[in-house]
Amino acid sequence: MFKSAGVKTLFMTPFCLWAGIFIFVPLLCMIWYGLTNDDEIFTPANLTLAFEPPYFKALLLSIGLALVSTIICLLLAYPLCLILTDKARDLSTAVSLLFILPLWMNSLLLTMAWQTILEKNGIINQVLRYFNLPDVALINTPTAIIIGMVYNFLPYMVLPLYVSLSKIDKRIIEAARDLGASYMQTFWKVILPLSLPGAAGGMTMVFIPALTTFVISALLGGGKLLLIGNVIEQEFIAGYNWHWGAGLSMVLMIFILINMAVTIFFDNSHEEVEEK
């Protein structure tokens, strides 16, 4: 039934319509706003704006914090996924459930919970005071934003990494061990290269939302640390300057495209390895 071209088209239509109306048309609107000024004259000024001092500073801070949290997510997720794929099944379902569980809750609530944990009179400091230890100033610092990003986006790193690690044929690892490779050699030469696509996918899925977030920085940064997402939000809402906001969003999209290109590159090189 599904083989007939007509039926295929029929089933594709809703998605194509959806994508057209809710992805393609808004994107065109954004590009239109991004490339014009108030008098509807074409200009690249909104794009170069991103490289002027206040905006560029916010952009650099966003890229920096997003990179740091992506790397932390990777370092946390990799060992966990190795353990999950290695050990008995019953444990792995429980642990992966624990990781997926936070995804069922609204990320705004999760971030607000972190606010009460990190605050000056928050949970961490109250525990420290109980033991007569000095307070730590965490809220409204870059550290707080990174904690929020890692917490919110870690599941997006774990899932693709887990999938790609569990896809590795156990016999390949056994063969490597059988041919005299030490555990470390097996890891570096077999497991790591085969898991790269998962790692690359996970890094994209963490880096992009971390780069564009404005909620986490607003709640945990106390408005003192401005990420590019906050600047765009401010241009659209407080500034009522959709042209600048759209221009900045387009610049941000360039960075996202670069990131995706890197991922695709990793995916392809992996396929070549397999073909060999």
Partner: peptide, 14 residues
Amino acid sequence: MDRYYNNLWLQVKV
């Protein structure tokens, strides 16, 4: 002037 105010505020915040 609105935009000027907003831009000054942005400069403070970054």
